[in-house]
C-alpha cells in the first residue's frame, strides 16, 4: 500500500458509537482504499447502517475519528429510496446532479433496466424495484470517489438482477465502495474485501 493510497483512503479509527445504553461499535477500525469494494455484513441491529452513516458523515462517532481525504466526493444509496415522488426518474437523478446532461442520466437508468415511459413518469408510479434502481442510478451517475450502498438491490426482481449486478461491477471498478448487505451472494459478486459486524 503506497503512502498516496493511504492518504486517499477513508479511515475509521477506534470508532465507538452508542444509542442510549446500547453500544453499536466499540473501537472499530476500517480503511477503505481507492479500488476497494468492501462488503459489510451482519445481523439486524449489528450497526451496518450506522457504519454507512458514519462513512457519509451523517453521524458523528462518540469516540474515535473518521478521516476523509480532502475534496472527497460521495454518493449513496440509502436504506430508503429517498426520491421525490412527483418527479420522474430522470428528474430525480438530475435533481442532485445538476451538471449531469439528460442523455447521461437516461443512459444510467437504461443500463439498470428502466426504459421508455418509466424514465418520464413520476417515480411514485414505478414499482418498488424500479424506484430502487432509480436510487441506484442516482448514486452511480454521480461518479463519486466513494459510494456507500445500503442494501442497494432490495426489491430488484430476479430477472433484472444479473444485468444490474453486471452494471454495478463496471461502475464500482476503481472507486472506493462500501456495500451493506444481508446477501452473501451479493457480497461475493461485488466485493473485494469484507467486514462482518457482530451483534
Amino acid at each position: 500500500m503506497s503512502p498516496r493510497d493511504v492518504a486517499l483512503a477513508v479511515r475509521l479509527e477506534a470508532v465507538s458509537k452508542r444509542y442510549r445504553e446500547v453500544s453499536v461499535f466499540d473501537g472499530l477500525d476500517l480503511e477503505v482504499h481507492p479500488g476497494e469494494v468492501w462488503a459489510v455484513t451482519g445481523a439486524n441491529g449489528s450497526g451496518k447502517t450506522t457504519l454507512a452513516r458514519l462513512l457519509l458523515g451523517l453521524e458523528r462517532p462518540d469516540a474515535g475519528s473518521v478521516w476523509w481525504p480532502t475534496g472527497l466526493t460521495r454518493a449513496a444509496v440509502f436504506q430508503e429510496n429517498r426520491l421525490c415522488p412527483h418527479l420522474s426518474a430522470v428528474a430525480n437523478v438530475r435533481l442532485v446532479l445538476p451538471r449531469l446532461r439528460r442523455p447521461a442520466a437516461e443512459g444510467e437508468l437504461r443500463a439498470l433496466g428502466l426504459h421508455g415511459a418509466d424514465l418520464t413518469r413520476p417515480v411514485s408510479q414505478l414499482s418498488g424495484g424500479q424506484q430502487r434502481r432509480v436510487a441506484l442510478a442516482r448514486a452511480l451517475a454521480a461518479r463519486a470517489d466513494m459510494v456507500v450502498l445500503d442494501e442497494p438491490l432490495t426489491g430488484v426482481d430476479e430477472e433484472s438482477l444479473p444485468a444490474v449486478l453486471a452494471h454495478l461491477r463496471v461502475r464500482l471498478a476503481g472507486t472506493m465502495a462500501v456495500l451493506i448487505t444481508h446477501s452473501n451472494a451479493e457480497a461475493r459478486a461485488l466485493a473485494s474485501r469484507s467486514l462482518h459486524l457482530p451483534v
Partner: peptide, 20 residues
Amino acid sequence: RSLLEVAWVFDVPLGRRLLA
C-alpha cells in the same frame, strides 16, 4: 430531512437545494 441528507451527501449546490 431524508432529502436534505441526500443533498448534503451529494453536495448539491445551495441554490439548487433551495429551489428543489
